[in-house]
């Protein structure tokens, strides 16, 4: 398991976490290369379908990073996302994936160091959990289906 490098998808809000990722880069902060950032206009755009398809296409872990609660650019998009992420945890648990493979984080655009910290912590968490138990041989098939 020591050489396991997980694939992690981070759905990041344009107004905060994506800015924080940019800042982390400008600050020359190091964080694991396992993270694949997908920019969203707001985490309120997230639905269970997005999260499930990420796992289906081979992600070992997925997280959603939105604005600090109360600071959403669209008033309450991050508050919409939070229960959806919790609901999706139940959906992946039904399938047999650990709910810890999915998480929601909140940060502001000024929190570059926090972005790097979340990326490091989450990567560590997924490394401890090990690869996604989904049968990797079938990934090409699910790619087509999705």
């Amino acid at each position: 398991m020591a050489d396991f490098e997980p694939t992690i998808v981070a759905f990041c809000c344009h107004y905060c976490a994506y800015g924080a990722a940019d800042l982390a880069g400008s600050m020359r902060l190091e964080y694991p290369t396992n993270i694949r950032v997908i920019r969203l206009p707001c985490t309120g755009k997230i639905t269970p379908v997005f999260l499930l398809r990420a796992f289906e296409k081979g992600a070992d872990g997925v997280y959603v990073a939105g604005c600090l609660e109360g600071d959403c650019h669209f008033i309450q998009g991050n508050l919409v996302a939070k229960p959806r992420v919790n609901y999706t945890k139940k959906l992946i648990q039904e399938v047999g994936l650990e709910p810890e493979r999915l998480e929601m984080f909140n940060m502001s655009a000024a929190m570059g160091p926090r972005f790097a910290e979340v990326a490091r912590e989450f990567t560590e968490r997924i490394k401890n959990l090990g690869p996604s138990p989904l049968n990797k041989k079938n990934r090409n098939k699910t790619d087509k289906a999705a």
């Binding site: 379908v49 499930l52 796992f55 039904e94 079938n138």
Partner: peptide, 8 residues
């Protein structure tokens, strides 16, 4: 998605 993942 759930069915595909569980069966995979």
């Amino acid at each position: 998605s759930q069915l595909r993942m569980a069966r995979d």
